[in-house]
């Protein structure tokens, strides 16, 4: 009898492992191995082909912290991530609230609001590139109409980052809008009916019903947008290539430049490790906040 049970357990274990095996293999090859390798390479001097030559400890990291370009990259990445995430969230939430109303023809607006989802990064960047053109672009025309001085959107240190944030927010809107709209529509209507009986204002209903009921989705959208923002690449490449003077040189773009254009794989790996740590901290922070909130709600 006892023996039987043991055998059963063993076969269950075997089944569990064999079911897990495929995902372990895939994760191992495509996630864990590259991660470990990146970590090793970040402590090596590499030749032009990216092969390690010698162990140099934390020298790659020290060089990074001492270089102006990395300092600029790091700062602008944080600024970029903060603004593009918050703006995306606020704007798409407002759009979702607006589009959740029951009106004739609302479907048309919902389609319009989510349409940026269908535009690829490259296409979107090129569209915005035209708008930012210093001579024939839309913004330049508007400034002329308003008799304002011309702005060089893509070559001014401050404006170029604003331009990239604007482009990114526009591209993100469609997806965030759609997810948030779904969450808002799933809120039971009777909550609002009760609120109406109490004579709650629009603002009150938004604060007390809509936002709390969709907090899980807001959290999801924040995490996804944040991680996406850290990995921004296409817009930078097409609009500014990291310029002027590294002021739009977001981390992932800097990594690409160092690894594939400058052939300094060691330096690029060191930056990748730093980026991984940053994203990890942010993600953990978010889960911590969420768990705390979740516990509070349960009470």
């Amino acid at each position: 009898m006892k023996k039987d049970k043991k055998g059963q357990l063993a076969s269950q274990n075997l089944l569990a492992w064999s079911l897990l095996l495929p995902s372990f293999i895939i994760l191992g090859i495509f996630v864990f191995y590259p991660m470990v390798k990146t970590f090793i390479l970040s402590m090596q001097l590499t030749d032009l082909m990216g092969n390690p030559i010698k162990f140099i400890g934390f020298k790659n990291f020290l060089n990074l912290f001492n270089s102006d370009s990395f300092g600029t990259s790091f700062t602008v990445t944080l600024i970029f991530v903060f603004f593009s995430t918050t703006l995306t969230l606020i704007m798409s939430y407002l759009m979702a609230v607006l589009a959740s109303q029951k009106m004739k023809g609302i479907a048309l607006f919902r389609t319009m609001f989510s349409s940026t989802m269908g535009v690829s990064v490259t296409v979107a960047s090129i569209l915005w590139l035209f708008m930012f053109n210093p001579q024939i672009g839309l913004f330049s025309k508007i400034l002329t109409l308003l008799h304002l001085p011309q702005i060089n959107f893509l070559s001014d240190q401050t404006w170029s980052l604003i331009a990239i944030i604007g482009t990114t927010v526009w591209m993100n809107l469609g997806f965030s809008f759609l997810i948030l709209l779904g969450a808002i529509q799933a809120i039971p209507q009777d909550l609002y009916q009760v609120a109406d009986l109490d004579g709650a204002s629009w603002w009150m209903r938004l604060r007390k019903i809509t936002i709390p009921s969709t907090s899980a989705t807001i959290f999801f959208v924040t995490v996804v947008t944040l991680i996406n923002a850290f990995q921004t690449f296409g817009q930078v490449d097409i609009l500014t290539s990291g310029g002027p003077d590294y002021h739009t040189n977001l981390l992932v773009y800097a990594i690409y430049q160092d690894a594939f254009v400058n052939h300094s794989v060691g330096r690029a790996s060191a930056q990748s490790v730093i980026l991984t740590i940053i994203i990890m901290i942010f993600t953990m922070l978010q889960f911590y906040v969420k768990n705390k909130k979740g516990a509070k709600n349960a009470n």
Binding site: L129, N133, I238, L239, S241, G243
Partner: peptide, 13 residues
């Protein structure tokens, strides 16, 4: 001077 910036397509522009 017109400044077309440093983007990948600056030369084409």
């Amino acid at each position: 001077l017109v400044d077309f910036g440093t983007g990948a397509n600056a030369g084409d522009s």
